[in-house]
Design a protein around this nucleic acid. Structure first.
Length: 471
DNA sequence: TTGCAGTGTCATACC
DNA sequence: AGGGTATGACACTGC
């Protein structure tokens, strides 16, 4: 609340007190400025300067009123005696004009100070993501639909299948696998309690793979089991791919917002991003056509693009190594499991190298996808920031013009006050005081000095030399 | 045919 | 030191 009128050596001004007085003196402007200060912290400097100006004005006016009373009531000789003024206290060699110039110099507000908090709420992010893709929930909660048409639904009572809905995706996946395996779901649940390494080994030990996608888009497929075609290892990588993207669906990024939802949705809707779905179905083309009603021609085309060829090649290599893991599993398994698997299979160096490459490529692919999503998100955030700053700029412009108008009004009032004061001032011979030869100066102790302009100029050159001005 | 956007991969830096 | 991650750059593809 205290503002030092910079560089002038003037004492601190209690803005609150001045503001209170201003409310009486300039009731309209004072209230406005207070409101401005309250509503926009970013323009604090503007308000401060205006408040200090108004404070100065009010101090000046009130003190001048007192002085006028003294002048009018007392003899001019008394006024010129410098009564009560210590020479040391009148060291202000600054003219009123200078002070006003200082006060009227608009300060630049810190324009970049924004009230917009950055949006990085990790807790809400997750729900936003989920809200963004409600279909993933629905897909999770309807495993029966995933199994519809398959031979699996008849194997277990509906209650068992219903249990699938009560667990997270991982457990759903495990249970789906157990369904396929004909295992007891309870056993699988117990297995789930064990270490991931053991789990992975158990789940993959008797089978080629079961590529499954319970959540997100993959859920529409349900799961893609190539257990029915155990010899189709060469294609499983494509199917397994979807699991990777299922995880990718749930990757979270700082500052998710509505914009990112749109962007992400755009990505999700893009054909490229999930072209693995038809590809995945290629491992079980009949099932795929039943579930997606896609023409086989399109499936073939999808399967034959370069990326899938590359993946198929990787998968082919991986499967030629008699390793009971899909490419996706090679990529996603913990490094300890991976190393254990390598050691267990006694593979030659070239094949180990190949597996490491497959793993590296798979991880880097996901990383690249995440990186691109982040980049897109950053771009959207920057665009939003630009919009916000433009809005803020317009607001500041309006506020600046409002402050300029207020300052103009105050200047007019000050001119009138100045003119009024000098019209009442008389020197010791009773002659009017020339306003061009004297300046009015307010001191910190409340006294008002009339200073000859030449002394002000002299003191500016020699600040230590002060002249006692007759009052 | 051209341009663009999406994607996978590599190389590299960093943790 | 090895593995994972992030990112720029490149090539390729489909639209």
């Amino acid at each position: 609340p205290y503002v030092r009128l910079g560089g002038l050596g003037v004492s601190d001004v209690d803005l609150k007190a001045y503001q209170k007085a201003l409310d009486n003196y300039f009731p309209h402007q004072g209230g406005d400025q207070l409101k401005l200060q309250d509503t926009n912290q970013s323009n604090h400097n503007h308000v401060d300067s205006l408040l200090s100006l108004e404070g100065c004005l009010h101090l000046l006016s009130s003190q001048m009123e007192n002085m006028l009373e003294v002048n009018l009531l007392e003899d001019t000789e008394v006024a010129t005696s410098g009564r009560g003024q210590e020479p040391s206290s009148s060291h202000y060699s600054v003219s009123l004009t200078q002070m006003l110039c200082h006060c009227f110099s608009p300060h630049e507000a810190p324009l970049l100070k924004t009230d917009h908090p950055t949006e990085s709420h990790s807790e809400t992010r997750h729900s936003q993501k989920q809200d963004c893709f409600p279909q993933s929930d629905s897909s999770v909660t309807t495993p029966e639909s995933l199994l519809c048409g398959s031979h699996l639904t008849g194997l277990f009572p509906a209650a068992d299948i219903g249990n699938l809905t009560a667990h997270d995706n991982s457990l759903d996946e495990i249970k789906l696998m157990s369904l396929e395996d004909g295992c007891d779901p309870i056993e699988v649940s117990q297995l789930f309690e064990e270490s991931s390494l053991d789990l992975a080994l158990v789940l993959n030990s008797g089978h080629s793979t079961a590529s499954y996608s319970v959540s997100s888009e993959g859920a529409a497929i349900g799961y893609n089991s190539d257990a029915n075609s155990a010899s189709s290892h060469g294609l499983e990588a494509i199917g397994g791919h979807s699991q990777e993207h299922t995880k990718y669906d749930h990757v979270e990024y700082p500052g998710d917002s509505e914009c990112s939802k749109k962007a992400t949705l755009k990505q999700f809707l893009h054909k490229h991003t999930y072209h693995q779905l038809p590809s995945q179905a290629a491992s079980t083309p009949v099932l795929h056509q039943q579930m997606w009603m896609k023409p086989s021609k399109e499936v073939k085309e999808r399967c034959c693009n370069t990326t899938d060829k590359k993946l198929s090649s990787d998968a082919h290599h991986a499967n030629s190594l008699t390793i009971p893991f899909s490419v996706d599993e090679i990529v996603s398994m913990p490094v300890d499991s991976f190393n254990t698997m390598l050691a267990k299979n006694q593979l030659p160096h070239t094949q180990v190298s190949l597996l490491r490459d497959i793993r590296r490529r798979g991880k880097n692919k996901v990383a690249a996808q995440n990186c691109r999503k982040r980049k897109l998100k950053a771009i959207l955030n920057l665009e939003e920031a630009v919009c916000n700053l433009q809005t803020q700029k317009e607001s500041l412009k309006r506020e600046h013009s409002q402050c300029s108008r207020s300052i103009s009004r105050l200047k007019q009032k000050l001119k009138g006050l100045h003119r009024d004061i000098f019209s009442h001032l008389r020197d010791d011979q009773g002659r009017p005081v020339n306003p061009y030869q004297y300046v009015i100066h307010c001191s910190s102790d409340g006294s008002v000095l009339l200073i000859p302009k030449y002394s002000v100029k002299a003191e500016q050159k020699q600040p230590n030399e002060k002249e006692q001005i007759p009052k």
